[in-house]
């Protein structure tokens, strides 16, 4: 249990760093892009909203320490300021409704990609002299070299525009009321297939290569040769003896890779006009909506940290050594 608590302390620290970076960045940067934004904004917003934005972006004269404390207080209350792109909606509210879509899309894609890539890694390591054992790794490495969002553009053009097999944009059909009913769920899944598939194609190669390397080094161990020589069934040898040990570094890497995969899937969302964080991010960049951008950074960071903690708990279950209080 100490392992999980130690990890939690680390994630809290990482979260604090993210909040502090968010506070410092607009105040450290040269020039004054925020006042230019304020000038544009002042005409269309109420004086109270302008004052709130001034506080968010250090345009007040209060000392830095005081600003930091009030920033921490506001963030803890979930007050991330007001979005300019979607004025007058509060940033927290805008992000909240989009976060579910991103978790749904990126979460499904990441899990499918990890399971698929890892299984293929096991297979290509075990039969690495067969024709598919030799061609599959470089083929998936080639797919992985494409930017995610470019694969998404190509897939959308081929299967959406030319063949018309999949819907072109958004997370669900326009005529459908969101809610827990069958038409909505079916529509949401239909809309997620194409974006999720492109993310899986772009990332599965990584998991395959990682697992294949681990498997090859575990398969070289003497205890595997012994198990094979004494005639254990192949499935038992591959999964219980080799794969269970070889998967550990992949699971550690899974948490680390999450931030990277989520970054890539944000761009995929933009291509499909998917109603998630990525779509908000591009809106924020195009309208120079600093509050929204910073809120997105915080929200995505916290989602990734939470997912990582979940992976740690899973890891503890997989690797009995972490359950003892041995420091790692």
């Amino acid at each position: 249990m100490t392992y999980v608590l130690r990890r939690l302390a680390f994630y809290l620290l990482a979260g604090w760093v993210a909040i502090t970076l968010n506070f410092l960045l607009p105040r450290m940067m040269p020039g004054d892009p925020t006042s230019a934004m304020m000038a544009r904004f002042e005409g269309q917003a109420s004086p109270e909203a302008v004052q709130a934005l001034r506080e968010t972006f250090a345009l007040t004269d209060a000392p830095l320490g005081e600003q930091y404390l009030s920033y921490l207080r506001n963030t803890a209350r979930g007050d991330l300021g007001i979005s300019i792109a979607l004025y007058p909606a509060p940033v927290a509210q805008v992000i909240g409704s989009a976060l579910l879509w991103t978790c749904f899309l990126a979460g499904t894609a990441v899990v499918v990609s990890f399971v698929l890539g890892t299984l293929l890694g096991i297979a290509t390591a075990w039969r690495r002299d067969s024709w598919w054992g030799r061609t599959l790794p470089p083929a998936l490495a080639f797919l992985g070299a494409f930017p995610y969002f470019w694969l998404a553009m190509l897939a959308l053009w081929l299967f959406g525009f030319l063949l018309g097999w999949f819907p072109l944009r958004h997370g669900y059909g326009d005529a459908i009321e969101p809610g827990w009913n069958l038409p909505f769920v079916v529509s949401a899944i239909r809309h997620a297939v194409l974006p999720a598939t492109t993310i899986v194609l772009a990332t599965a190669g990584n998991w395959l290569l990682r697992m294949r390397n681990n498997m090859i080094s575990v398969l070289g161990e003497d205890y595997i040769s012994l198990a094979h020589a004494k005639g254990l069934p192949q499935a038992r040898l591959v999964f219980h003896y080799a794969a269970r040990n070889a998967v550990l570094p992949s699971v550690t890497g899974f948490g680390m890779a999450l931030g990277f995969v989520v970054s890539g899937s944000l761009l995929t969302e933009i291509i499909f006009a998917y109603p998630g964080q990525g779509y908000l991010l591009v809106q924020a960049v195009r309208t120079q909506d600093f509050a929204l951008m910073q809120g997105l950074f915080l929200a995505i960071t916290f989602a990734v940290l939470a997912a990582n903690w979940f992976v740690d708990i899973l890891y503890m279950w997989l690797d009995p050594r972490t359950r003892s209080s041995r420091p790692s």
Binding site: Y11, A14, V17, L296
Partner: peptide, 24 residues
Amino acid sequence: SLLTNVFLILPGLPLAVVIAVYMP
């Protein structure tokens, strides 16, 4: 190591966006 691990876990793209918008 702590610094490395913190930077490793922060999602790259949103952080890059937050830094890049304040620069030319």
